[in-house]
Amino acid sequence: MSNTETSDSLITTDVETGANERSATTDATAVAARDLDVYYGDEQAIDGVSMEIPENRVTALIGPSGCGKSTFLRCINRMNDMIEICRVEGDVEFGGKNVYDADVDPVALRRKIGMVFQKPNPFPKSIRDNVAYGLKIQGFDGDVDERVEESLKGAALWDEVKDQLGSSGLELSGGQQQRLCIARAIAPDPEVILMDEPTSALDPVAASKIEDLIDDLAEEYTVIIVTHNMQQAARISDRTAVFLTGGRLVEYDDTTKIFEDPEEQRVEDYITGKFG
């Protein structure tokens, strides 16, 4: 991916101060928002958000319910286009290109950006067909079975399902279904993976499996994850963005900084559970 200029960013991406041991070879920007406003009809859901999300890192979005985290996520792969009353102003840059430019095909964009939803939503097809779905619609001309295996391994699901690839994806448990959705998202080899509360419907064991998985995914992908679970954000993310009511980005910094020494009192209150 091409590197974009990061001159006037509000927050510098300083890898050295990150608590994470992930080797720092680059601090290139994968996704950047500039003065982003989103409206649903007359109601504003995102208010002047600017931020730069680094490549091959896990970035967590936290904040109280209704503050616009999902909306922000959906701006990145233009899933907001599906909502008729939704209107977006400002830029979202992906690979140095504003995704809201007239010459961007949202379908082609989504093929570069995988998404995992809050509620596992495997298709009522076989496990194999679920994982191969993205390959199929993109006309992949390599070895599909090999890619399916790789993706299932990447989603830490292979050992559990390798003998039942032909059975329906709906026969799996909730946690397995979510990992199947992750396998489905990574199979076409996207550059960014968006996750909207991927573990909120799961028990702690299944959730911790997915957390480990996210950690591994960041080796190859840029992961942007929305979560309501503070420990989860602290454990898995390199950078954390705190949204507060009204769709404003209040603080965005290295995760350690946010959780140990936030600049803003409101952020500290939110993190420690005093408000939100």
């Binding site: 379908v107 495997p122 298709f123």
Partner: peptide, 25 residues
């Protein structure tokens, strides 16, 4: 379910692909 359509759309399926592969079956 709308979930399934969104899942397919987010994979980068065109509307026709979503209809044919997910909705119709």
């Amino acid at each position: 379910p709308e979930d399934l359509r969104r899942g397919s759309d987010a994979m980068g399926a065109t509307r026709w692909q979503t209809t044919k592969n997910v909705v119709l079956p």
